[in-house]
């Protein structure tokens, strides 16, 4: 019971850090992603036979399936993954991890578990927020540059809507959250050396997590989207 309370506290602290650390960048990237997707899709759709609202449909599908879970995953690895690795690496080289161990605390579970759990709680939420902001960004860009009317945009984002895609996008976000948090923690926790190595561990954490996310992205698409 005591352990449960300690861990809940640690998880909440991590959640707050993850949230504060990434929400601004994630929101910014998501909004622009949607806006740019709208402009580029409009630029590519030159046929008079394709109705304008299809632009909104394209923005929606790209956002839900790929842009929100995956691109935000890359941002998340860069922001949150690198800071997890940097934090743990610093704790390692300054003997803070040894200090925990001397007190008889299992440092791996004490430090890493809350990060992974917090990531599983926070990342899907960030992805959902990013999805909404991306679609909002698309709306703003589309309406301001008079590519399509507000009515068309609203019609387009509901057109042929398949809820399975949302489920798939959220499933992806759980997988990515786990991969990024555990790979980054691993890189940080097993740092040896000095400040230089902490920097390297941070970079490795980002590189490795991004690669893992992209591979997982492909495999999940292969498993769940191909008939």
């Amino acid at each position: 019971m005591e352990t449960f309370r300690t861990y809940s506290k640690l998880v909440i602290e991590e959640c707050i850090q993850i949230g504060i650390g990434s929400i601004f960048l994630v929101g910014l990237v998501a909004t622009f992603m949607g806006a740019v997707t709208t402009l580029q899709t409009a630029f590519n759709l030159v046929s008079p036979f394709i109705p304008d609202y299809i632009i909104a449909t394209v923005v929606r599908d790209m956002t839900v399936l790929e842009l929100a879970p995956t691109i935000i995953g890359v941002i998340y690895a860069g922001k949150v993954g690198s800071s997890m690795a940097g934090g743990l690496g610093t704790m390692r080289i300054t003997e803070q991890i040894d200090a925990l161990e001397v007190m008889g605390i299992n440092s791996a579970s004490y430090l890493v578990l809350p990060k992974v759990i917090a990531s599983l709680l926070m990342y899907p939420m960030l992805v959902i927020i990013a999805g909404f902001l991306s679609i909002l960004g698309g709306y703003l860009a589309g309406v301001f540059s008079e590519i399509l009317t507000p009515f068309d945009y609203k019609y387009g984002i509901q057109y042929l809507f398949n809820p399975y895609m949302v489920k798939f996008g959220i499933l992806k976000s759980y997988v990515f959250a786990f991969l990024i948090a555990s790979i980054s923690s691993f890189r940080g926790y097993y740092t040896t050396g000095g400040a230089l190595e902490v920097g390297k561990a941070s970079t490795r954490a980002v590189t490795d997590s991004v690669i893992a996310v992209l591979i997982a992205d492909y495999l999940l698409a292969e498993m769940f989207l191909t008939k």
Partner: peptide
């Protein structure tokens, strides 16, 4: 510890 190892 050598560097104090306070939790920062």
């Amino acid at each position: 510890f050598q560097g104090s190892a306070l939790f920062d």
